[in-house]
Design a protein around this nucleic acid. Structure first.
Lengths: 231, 231
DNA sequence: AATATAGTGTGTCAGATTTACACCATTAAA
DNA sequence: TTTAATGGTGTAAATCTGACACACTATATT
């Protein structure tokens, strides 16, 4: 027996909180909207999910269309479903987050006309955002903080080769507190998944620091036995 | 300028993973479906969200209609959005979880005809469930495990007055491993939010254990300064 | 009354982890 | 050569964790 699903005018969307780290500051990706409602406002990159794509795929597509960025590892973190969160009807949105190295070269260029531009903005002093995007951002930021403590996500925000000071300042930016240099280094190195390179920092006008990189293979070897309770 | 939202035949639903603890065993609430598809199968309590209710409200309503339970503190934990997770069309579902004291008296009685019955089932040896509900359950169970370590959720599963042994066996059931009795007690008591009562267990044929209760006021006082990163 | 049964309740020590804390080294620029 | 800026390092105290065993108490059984 076939039973038909009820047909409602319900719309699903995706919104993305994309974190980057640049010049010692944590930033997120914003777009300038080119569509009503909230035309000309700043907003998180987000749009409507199509009928025939999974929400994970939708997240990737939408981010690409609005910013030109691809192949990020995005994870959903919360779904926002208040009745009046969208002025034009019922829209439930699934929020995703991702981390990315901000790369001077990589241009941010919307592929659709729904956004006028896309750009990085420091997470401190965020302007007012469209819809309930300020709340969505805040929830995502909390998630990021929490995950920083038990997942190797910091390395996705840094260049491939980085100094311990850069790593520490990233932790400090995300957690919003000062850490002790010696203790921080001792602990990070004790994990055993940082690989010390034979290279040093270049172009600084003071003693150059050693460069390290994150050894993902070692990381998984070390932590393969721990339950993955992340889902 | 008014812009109309596109109209898709998208359907939203809620599914609930409700945990209870009884006779030393962790259980979840299942229903027997009375509707196609998957008529007569066992499933998590779940149904479709209405146009004019928030998803949080929908979760409460749906659980009530299918099981007769009300006023649980439910929290969403994941949204499942694969294209073909529902055989009759596109249905995206937001999964919620909650913890509850299983109370002998409290009867489980569906209010709607969509379920034939509702009952508790041990989380070990779960039968095959309808749709992707096995995966939803598994994700929720992982979430529960993780939260047990940093949130005072164990107490929602126990009677108001409980013994330390009961508390320990709950932890053991959720984490699925044996804990050391002396260390467990030392640690729990050291937090300072367990209130020792002047009462003892009754009706046991061996030395009666002291009863404790969870002092939520003390708990919040102790942990008020810690960042609440739970959202 | 004696005994069996079943679970309660308790302390210590070793090892690991966390925290606090200050100074010399190196490089480039002035 | 001096200054400015950051890199890099060790130790000791305090705290936390994990391993480990036995006497106590209440009831039921004989």
């Amino acid at each position: 027996m076939e039973v038909k699903l009820p047909t409602f005018n319900s719309v699903f969307s995706i919104d993305c909180v994309i974190f980057g780290f640049e010049a010692g500051e944590l930033k997120i990706l914003l777009i300038e909207r080119n569509e009503e409602p909230y035309k000309d406002w700043l907003a998180l990159p987000g749009y409507i999910v199509e009928q025939d794509e999974s929400i994970d795929n939708a997240a990737e597509r939408i981010l690409y269309e609005l910013t030109g960025l691809r192949d990020l590892h995005m994870q959903q973190f919360h779904t926002f479903g208040e009745v009046n969160r969208h002025p034009q009807g019922r829209v439930i949105t699934v929020a995703y987050y991702a981390l990315i190295r901000i790369n001077g070269q990589k241009e941010l260029k919307p592929v659709t006309q729904y956004a006028k531009s896309a750009f990085w903005h420091p997470v401190n002093e965020l302007p007012k955002l469209a819809f309930d995007h300020t709340e969505i951002f805040q929830t995502g930021f909390n998630k990021l903080r929490r995950r920083l403590n038990y997942q190797p996500i910091a390395f996705e925000l840094l260049p491939e080769k980085f100094t311990l000071t850069q790593l520490q300042s990233l932790y400090e930016a995300v957690l919003n507190k000062k850490l002790d240099k010696r203790n921080f280094r001792k602990k990070m190195l004790s994990y055993g998944f940082l690989k010390e390179l034979d290279e040093k920092q270049k172009g600084v006008s003071y003693r150059a620091a050693k460069l390290y990189k994150f050894d993902r293979r070692k990381y998984t070897k070390i932590f393969q036995n721990e339950l993955n309770l992340d889902s």
